[in-house]
Design a protein around this nucleic acid. Structure first.
Lengths: 147, 147
DNA sequence: AAGTTAGTGATAATGATTATCATTTTTATT
DNA sequence: AATAAAAATGATAATCATTATCACTAACTT
C-alpha cells in the first residue's frame, strides 16, 4: 500500500482520538486535509489498515463499524444508548482459552470481550433510545451530543 | 403478545435446534407449519421474544443475526469461516465487572464474551472464505454445508 | 353482534458497506 | 525525460439484512 495523502490523512484522523470513531467521522476529518476525497476511499484504506493489523474494527450489528487506531491488549465497554466506547484493561484469562480449544476442537485466533451498559451521562439522562441506524457519536451532520 | 400460530411456530422452530439459526432459516421452518407466513412477521416475533427475554440474538456486523432459543449463563465460540456458533461454558468472572463499573462509571447490564477461530472442519478444509453477506449455515436455498 | 385492539402479509424503504469502472496518479523501465 | 505498467482514486450503482408502512384480518370485550 502506497502512503498516499489519503492514506496518511485517514490514519492521522483515526489516531487523533481515543474515542473509536466511525468511517463517516473519519471521512469528515480527512476532507479537511484532502478536499475531494471519496467516502469509498476512506472505507478502502480502513480495510487495508485493518488487514495489515495497524488498526482494529469494532463491529456491532445494525450500528456502523467503529475503528480503533490503537489496537492492543485491551477491551471495551460500550454504552447501549449513545454508542460511546471506552477502553478497559480487564481481559479473560488465557488458561480459559486453552480449555476451550481442547473441549471444542476449534482453533482460536482471537476473542471478543465487551461489557455493555449505560455511560455515566446516559445513566442520568432519560432521553429515548435511538434507532439502530443512528449513533449519536460521530454522526455525520448532527455532531456528537456529548464528550 | 397473543400466542398466535405464527408466534408458536417461530418459537418451536428456534427451539428445535441448538445451532443458533438465522431469521431466514426460522422463516423456512415456519412456512412448513404456516404456509403463507411473511418474513416480516418472523422478524417481528423474534424481536418481541428478544425484548421479553425469552430468546437472545447474537449479532455480528455484516452477517445476519443469529438467534439463541436457550439463553442462559453460557457464551459462544464462532467459526470465522463458516459461521458456526457453539456454546461454551466459560465466562469472565463477576468480580471483574464490579471493578469496571467503579473505574468507568458505567452501569453494566450485560457483557459479550466470544471466542473466534476455525471450527475443526474448517481448520482442515482450505476452501476460500466467503463474503460478508453469505453464511454457509442456514442460508436460504443452499442449506448448511456441514453439521 | 358491534367495536376496539393487536397481529399479519406484502412490499417499499433504509442505510452502511462494497463493487464497479473509467480516470488519475505513482512507480518502474527503457 | 518518455513510455509503459501498476496501483489508487472518485463517483456512483448495487447489495442485502432488517425495518417501516399500511391496508386487511383475526381475536378479544362488552
Amino acid at each position: 500500500m502506497r502512503k498516499t495523502r489519503q492514506y496518511q490523512a485517514v490514519l492521522e484522523a483515526l489516531r487523533s482520538t481515543r474515542a473509536h470513531p466511525s468511517a463517516e467521522w473519519i471521512y469528515d476529518q480527512v476532507r479537511g486535509q484532502v478536499p475531494g476525497v471519496s467516502l469509498a476511499t476512506v472505507y478502502r484504506i480502513l480495510k487495508t489498515l485493518e488487514v495489515e493489523g495497524v488498526i482494529a474494527s469494532l463491529e456491532y450489528a445494525g450500528r456502523r463499524t467503529r475503528f480503533d487506531g490503537y489496537p492492543g491488549p485491551h477491551n471495551h465497554i460500550v454504552c447501549l444508548r449513545c454508542g460511546a466506547i471506552e477502553d478497559v484493561e480487564a481481559a479473560p484469562d488465557e488458561s480459559t482459552q486453552k480449555k476451550i480449544e481442547l473441549s471444542t476442537g476449534f482453533r482460536v485466533s482471537h476473542y471478543r470481550f465487551e461489557w455493555f451498559g449505560l455511560c455515566p451521562r446516559c445513566a442520568t439522562n432519560s432521553d429515548p433510545l435511538r434507532s439502530k441506524h443512528s449513533d449519536s457519536y460521530y454522526n455525520s451532520d448532527k455532531g456528537a451530543q456529548h464528550e
